[in-house]
Design a protein around this nucleic acid. Structure first.
Length: 708
DNA sequence: GGCATGTGTATTTTT
DNA sequence: TACACATGCC
């Protein structure tokens, strides 16, 4: 079948999609059909005879990769496009390391830690070293992870990173250095990999004499999406992946780089031509998404930027009505206005799923979420607190991870402390008894006898001494672990064998979870509030697990690509269900909706107070607002609450007046139509619905006097 | 050594 | 608000 789908592309898109071999840089502005172009390029390459499994497609989220592959599949139905290596840098690194990691002496069953696991390990080390004892202000675990990650990702010296980004921690240089050294060693000893390690070890694989060539030569073509949000390690890795073959396509937009906190650098995209000599360049400027009036506002915003950007968007879509800027009395009014507009749009046949509310920080939607709940408006929140970060879910995963990697100190430490009468001290002693601390039995890793002596075997053969109060639940834990491995721990003196070759097959992953729940349910009931909800969450986990045959795969997928929202699992939305999208701006990247509501357009929120320290920070916040605005297809609402109550800090009626976001200068505001919420008529297209009146504002303000 | 209770403080974005 | 840390009791 010929390639008639190419007819749908404009000349620039077609040039990018049908580019031959060699390096190609595609500058693709917001809404210029980037996904479509990349999907077509995948389809084109396959159509030209490239084998799908010889294409590497790197995207920012797994969802993005899946979407492109799905689209490409539609174009070339004859070939199994699913064989394309698609996913995030981290997911691909994980996959390669499981195959080739032995070249770096990595165990194939290493554990992937997410950032909160990394924080726990930092904390463990911090307390062991006692660095925090005399200094009251030693950085907290999250700060430690942030500093560490920034340092390795930017390949910068700790000194310089502290000077530049964490000046308030400069005093603690020595202590932090010690913590980081132990952190690195401890991970190596216990087969733990944090997110940064995945990238660093992939790069190391590329540089390896043994397998570097083989890995690079696996792929004829490498395609990279969202290139503006990659860091120096990733850029270096890409160079390492191009040895015999030089075909690489990177797509990005310098005006949408919003991940510098993760050490992403816009230099990657700007320097691409030098890094990959002979690179061709294609620019996509025609926007298919937004009305001209939305683009006018977005362009006006970027005109204020300090930096020059490489393109200017245009559209031949009808100009549409101007975006609206709503001045609200306070957050309550903002919430009310958002709900009202959402329902009005729904009445005008824009279903909830085609609308989104965007905000800077996860908790900015708290008030709105409560109101949506009250009004029975279903929603789905992206970003913010993840299901996987809930304590009881981490507990469950920790048990699974012990099974997978018995040297996972973090998980042991966590699980043991769940037992009554076991705190940090006892937990550490038990771990010692079990030999979880690998430094003790390192000498001959390959020696068969040593391998047989994993902490789990010791647990089954010679259970360690535990406090009387913990005895019952400890034996319950032991039983659960044994059940999951398909091992019998009946009589005390038996010597069961729990190697994978053990006689009775280990049960399926959902069954393992059910066994774990037997141990965990009483624990959850004792330790947490809301235990019924939490126990149900564990059941939900088993439901997801039913899609997996491999426990290792399940754990890693959950870590690298966690369910995006708590509600994902609490009430999995049916396909025909209509629900509103709530999202942080970061998580909204790459998405589009018919109607977009941006809330909290106040200085201190956008830009975030945390980011206004230097001009680079402010510039990034501007791009963030740009990303938010360009998500809208037909209608854009921006909300500004004038008054914030700081009940958070002090009780009472203290409040302060906010400033409109500094990015909404006069030149930008002329692209908006401004409304005072509750004080004037609504625009034509939402005229005939009841609206808040002046009197309502008065009543609200009176009521507030005793609402507290 | 564990654990309940009280106090102070910092407070973004994500693979 | 929520989390880390200190204190004092069991």
């Amino acid at each position: 079948m010929a390639t008639n789908w190419l007819d749908d592309l404009n000349p620039a898109q077609r040039e990018a999609a049908t580019f031959g071999t060699g390096p190609l840089l595609v500058i693709a502005g917001a809404g210029t059909g980037k996904t479509k172009t990349l999907a077509c390029r995948v389809a084109y390459l396959i159509d030209q005879g490239v084998k799908p499994e010889r294409i590497l497609l790197l995207t920012f989220t797994r969802r993005a990769a899946a979407e492109m592959i799905r689209r490409a599949q539609k174009m070339c139905s004859a070939v199994e496009v699913g064989k394309v290596w698609g996913g995030t840098f981290h997911a691909v690194a994980n996959r390669l390391l499981r195959i080739y990691g032995q070249a770096l002496s990595l165990a194939p069953n290493f554990t992937v830690m997410d950032q909160s696991d990394a924080a726990d390990l930092m904390n463990l080390i911090r307390s062991e070293l006692g660095v925090a004892k005399d200094k009251r202000r030693f950085p907290k675990k999250r700060t430690l992870v942030a500093v560490y990650s920034h340092t390795v990702n930017a390949q910068n010296s700790l000194r310089r990173v502290l000077d530049k980004y964490f000046p308030w921690c400069k005093e603690e240089y020595e202590g932090m250095k010690a913590v980081f050294e132990h952190y690195v060693q401890r991970k190596a000893d216990h087969q733990l990999m944090d997110f940064d390690d995945l990238l660093l070890h992939w790069l190391a694989l590329c540089d390896s004499q043994e397998v570097g060539r083989a890995i690079a030569d696996r792929f004829d073509h490498v395609l990279v999406d969202e290139y503006q949000d990659t860091n120096v390690i990733q850029a270096r890795t890409l160079r390492g992946m191009r040895k015999a073959y030089d075909s690489i396509t990177v797509v990005g937009d310098d005006a949408q780089s919003i991940y510098s906190f993760r050490s992403a650098t816009v230099r990657n995209i700007l320097d691409f031509p030098e890094q990959f000599p002979g690179a061709q360049r294609v620019t996509l400027e025609k926007n298919y998404r937004s009305t001209q009036s939305i683009l006018a506002a977005a362009n006006a915003l970027m005109d204020q930027a300090v930096e020059r950007y490489t393109k200017r968007l245009w559209s031949d879509r009808a100009s549409g009505s101007k975006p609206l800027l709503h001045h609200c009395v306070d957050e309550t009014q903002q919430t009310e206005a958002v709900c009202r507009h959402i329902l009005q749009h729904r009445e005008q046949d824009v279903p909830l799923r085609d609308q989104a509310v965007l905000f800077r920080a996860g908790h900015h939607s708290a008030d709105l979420e409560i109101e949506l709940g009250r009004r029975n408006i279903p929603f789905h929140k992206y970003g913010g607190l993840k299901f996987i970060e809930a304590a009881h879910i981490k507990d469950t995963l920790a048990v699974l991870r012990i099974l997978e990697n018995p040297y996972d100190v973090i998980s042991w430490f966590r699980v043991l402390q769940l037992l009554e009468a076991i705190g940090p001290k006892t937990a550490r002693r038990i771990m010692n008894d079990l030999g979880v601390d690998r430094r003790d039995d390192q000498p001959s890793r390959t020696d068969d006898e040593t391998r047989r002596q994993t902490p789990l075997h010791r647990l089954f053969r010679t259970p360690p001494r535990v406090p009387a109060g913990a005895r019952e639940s400890f034996s319950c834990l032991r039983q659960s672990l044994a059940d999951c491995l398909g091992v019998v721990v009946g009589a005390e003196n038996e010597t069961p064998d729990a190697t994978p070759t053990s006689l009775s097959d280990p049960p399926s992953v959902p069954v393992q979870l059910e066994r774990i729940a037997r141990f965990l349910n009483p624990v959850i009931e004792r330790v947490y509030d809301n235990y019924l909800v939490r126990q149900r969450d564990v059941d939900q986990l088993a439901l997801i697990a039913s899609r997996y045959r491999s426990r290792a795969r399940f754990i890693t997928d959950l870590t690298l690509d966690p369910p995006s929202a708590t509600s994902d699992l609490a009430q999995p939305p049916h396909l025909d269900d209509d629900y509103l999208n709530l999202s942080t701006i970061h998580s909204a990247k790459g998405c589009e909706w018919t109607v977009v509501h941006i809330i909290h357009a106040a200085d201190g929120m956008i830009p975030s107070d945390m980011a206004v320290g230097d001009s680079a920070g402010v510039e990034e916040e501007r791009r963030l607002l740009y990303v938010a605005m360009t998500r809208a297809k037909d209608r854009l609402h921006v909300y500004f609450p004038l008054r914030y109550y700081h009940a958070k800090y002090r009780r009472g009626d203290g409040h302060g007046f906010a400033q409109l976001s500094r990015f909404l200068v006069d030149k930008v505001r002329t692209c908006f139509e401004e409304r005072a919420v509750g004080q004037s008529a609504e625009p034509d297209d939402m005229a005939n619905t009841p609206s808040t009146t002046d009197a309502q504002v008065v009543r609200d303000s009176i009521n507030r006097l005793w609402s507290d």
